[in-house]
Simulated scan of single mutants.
Amino acid sequence: MEFTVIGHWGAYPETNEATSGYLIEHKSSKVLLDCGSGVLSGLQNYVMLEDLDTVFITHLHADHIADMYSLEFATLILMQMGKRTTPLDIYVYCKDLTKLDFCYPEYVKVHPIDLQATVAIGDMTFTFSENIHDVPSCAVKVSSSEGKCLVYSGDTGYCQSIIEFSRGSDVLVLESSFYNVQKGLNNGHLTAGEAGDIAALAQTGQLILTHLPHYGDHNQLVMEASSHFDRQIQLAYCGMKLTI
């Protein structure tokens, strides 16, 4: 599997960058995890929009879904131009899909994320786990036919479920919204130390810190995570690529 960070910022994008968005490619399949602000523009550096198979949205906060409706219009135009031949599948984790503002069901097929279900796309399978957050939010596990596994946390507070869900993963892409000194500020997000603790308990192969704050020294996040986790830790950045 090929993993590309399209956007990694929390809340809003820095200049010419993006909030949450991650491209997964395996053989001919191309899947986007979250579609936040700035993601649609950045995504086109790596994949043609007509070749995108599926999008998974972990929750409805704007920094994870802001560009989704623009992608719907792009899909409409590409299909009308004959560049895309099939509708785009979008899986969303929320309580009520009818409250979403998608307008063109003939071009975009919207599905609820079922925590008990497995979604197969090409030679990959996608499974899901409930997080702690102030709106319904889920983590996503991507498993390849070769036995490799990546877990993306979405937004979450510290909880046993993300530890169990991530156990034995090759790569854990875990939000790190806060520095340790801010622990307890928001129960729906993680400090870097908590992220490292989760990675250690899950015995993941390597940790990527993402959903980063717009202040402080991000190298401190790595130091704080490394006090719990002694394997490889990397900071996500726009354009980061990893082969799993």
Rank of each mutant, 00 (worst) to 15 (best):
C35M: 01
T156E: 03
K148H: 15
C35S: 09
D51A: 10
L78V: 06
L40Q: 01
H8C: 05
D155F: 15
S20L: 13
F3H: 00
A66H: 13
E164L: 08
V55F: 10
G7N: 01
W9I: 04
F178D: 10
L43N: 03
L23H: 04
V92D: 03
Y93W: 10
I163V: 06
A11V: 15
S70A: 15
L52C: 03
I6L: 02
V135L: 08
C103M: 12
A139P: 03
H111C: 06
D51G: 13
L207C: 04
W9H: 02
L88E: 04
G184A: 07
Y46I: 06
L97P: 00
Q232V: 13
T118P: 07
I113G: 05
L190V: 09
V140D: 13
L221F: 02
Y12L: 09
Q116P: 11
I162E: 05
L212Q: 00
H61Q: 12
G205V: 02
V222T: 00
V119C: 13
L172I: 09
Y46V: 01
G216F: 01
K95Y: 11
Y91K: 09
S137G: 11
V47G: 09
K83P: 05
T127F: 01
E25V: 15
A236C: 11
L71R: 03
Y93M: 11
I121D: 14
T127S: 02
L190S: 08
A11Y: 13
Y158T: 14
V171R: 08
H218Y: 05
K109V: 07
G239R: 04
G193D: 00
T243C: 10
L115Q: 15
Y107A: 05
K183I: 15
D51L: 15
L242G: 11
D89L: 10
D197M: 06
A139N: 04
K141W: 15
A195P: 02
E2M: 14
A11T: 15
M223A: 12
G205S: 07
V47Q: 12
C238I: 07
D96P: 04
M48S: 14
A11G: 15
V140Y: 06
I198M: 01
Y158D: 14
L40V: 00
S143T: 13
A192H: 11
L221N: 01
I162F: 01
S70V: 13
Q44C: 03
V92H: 02
L221T: 03
F73I: 14
V92Q: 06
M124R: 12
G38F: 01
Q80I: 05
S143A: 14
V119Q: 04
P13N: 11
